[in-house]
């Protein structure tokens, strides 16, 4: 019963995503694309933060790597489908190289290394004019053309983004459900026990970070053709922080958390326009309150309310399996 309900909800959700942009102005469609893209980036970070418990403040720089690689190659005449994977491989390799030293040490060293790394990527993108176009950036990237369908129109591009998003989400679902993904969850719930069960926590965390970075790169490779302009400032540290807060606000460690968080961050300014400059103040306060009272984010709040209103049948402690005489 619950199983099929879940499937039904999933189908309804997909249906909503398909019809959402119909009849909307270009601006709304653009916002929806941007939401999908940031959801992908946040989903990747969720693997690092929500499952492996490490803070990364470099998701925007991985977006930069993906975006610049895609931009340079598509501008050179390569097809997006070829250019994108090269960007992803690059992100994976860089993720491993960066995570290796940082994860050698216990504590939140990854946070600082990634924070500094984000600055470095910004500097390289800005200073190496010959490659990246420097502070002027790169523009005029073509949108992918798939023979019968071109994604030049905003609506077509939305569906293209949606397809990439669904594939990325399905893969993430697979990763989290695989035995290997279950090891992640064991790691999150109890690192010491996980270690004692023979899980190499360091290698696992490193892999989670590298895969999370690849998702950042994928989001970047979609930003390139969406905005058709990239410049270093769009990938500064503040954007990494923004993505991190998306994951946290939505609910770190929950599959749908990043998508909810991205929706809040991207759509909330629209809703709270009347508050003018106070928007960020309200938002930051919301995050602090969430962290103090419900660190598992909005999804956590939701499930708490659900548990209160509609509490499941409770097991009698004495009938629990595993109880022994």
């Amino acid at each position: 019963m619950r199983f099929s309900l879940k499937h039904l909800l999933l189908l309804v959700g997909l249906g909503v995503l398909v019809v959402a942009p119909l009849g909307q102005g270009n601006y709304i469609v653009y916002m929806l694309c941007s939401w999908l893209i940031f959801s992908i980036a946040a989903m990747g970070l969720n693997l690092t933060l929500g499952y492996a418990g490490q803070i990364s403040l470099a998701q925007a720089s991985f977006m930069a790597i993906g975006a610049y690689t895609t931009a340079l190659l598509t501008l050179a005449g390569w097809h997006w489908v070829v250019a994108m994977p090269i960007g992803l491989v690059l992100c994976f390799v860089v993720g491993l190289a960066l995570g290796f030293p940082a994860l050698r040490v216990r504590g939140h060293f990854l946070a600082f290394v990634t924070l500094a790394f984000n600055t470095l990527v910004f500097l390289v993108a800005r200073n190496e004019d010959w490659l990246t176009g420097g502070t002027y950036g790169k523009f005029g990237m073509p949108r992918p053309d798939f023979g019968i369908v071109s994604t030049d129109s905003q609506l077509n591009f939305y569906y293209f983004t949606l397809i990439v998003f669904v594939i990325a989400a399905a893969l993430m679902w697979g990763i989290v459900r695989s035995p290997w993904g279950r090891a992640f969850r064991a790691l999150r719930e109890n690192p010491i026990r996980a270690e004692s069960l023979g899980i190499d926590t360091r290698r696992l965390t490193l892999l989670a970070f590298a895969i999370g970075s690849v998702y950042g790169g994928l989001a970047g490779s979609l930003v390139s053709p969406l905005v058709q302009f990239i410049e270093p400032g769009s990938f500064a540290v503040i954007h990494s922080l923004r993505i991190l807060l998306m994951v946290v606000v939505g609910g770190a460690g929950f599959f749908y958390g990043p998508m909810l968080g991205a929706a809040v961050v991207i759509l909330l300014p629209e809703v709270l326009r009347f508050t003018e400059g106070y928007y960020l103040i309200l938002y930051a306060t919301l995050v602090i309150v969430l962290m103090v009272f419900c660190p598992s984010g909005l999804i956590g709040v939701g499930s708490r309310i659900r548990d209160k209103l509609w509490s499941r049948t409770r097991d009698r402690g004495d009938l629990k399996q595993g109880a022994q005489l």
């Binding site: 601006y27 653009y30 941007s34 502070t135 002027y136 950036g137 523009f139 905005v227 302009f229 410049e231």
Partner: peptide, 26 residues
């Protein structure tokens, strides 16, 4: 960029802005 698009969707005759060159170029 998104906002210029929005302003145009809403029927702008002409657009004032932006001041920062990095935004205007986009």
């Amino acid at each position: 960029r998104a906002l210029v698009q929005k302003a145009i969707d809403e029927g702008a005759y002409a657009i004032m802005g932006t001041v920062y060159s990095g935004s205007t170029i986009v």
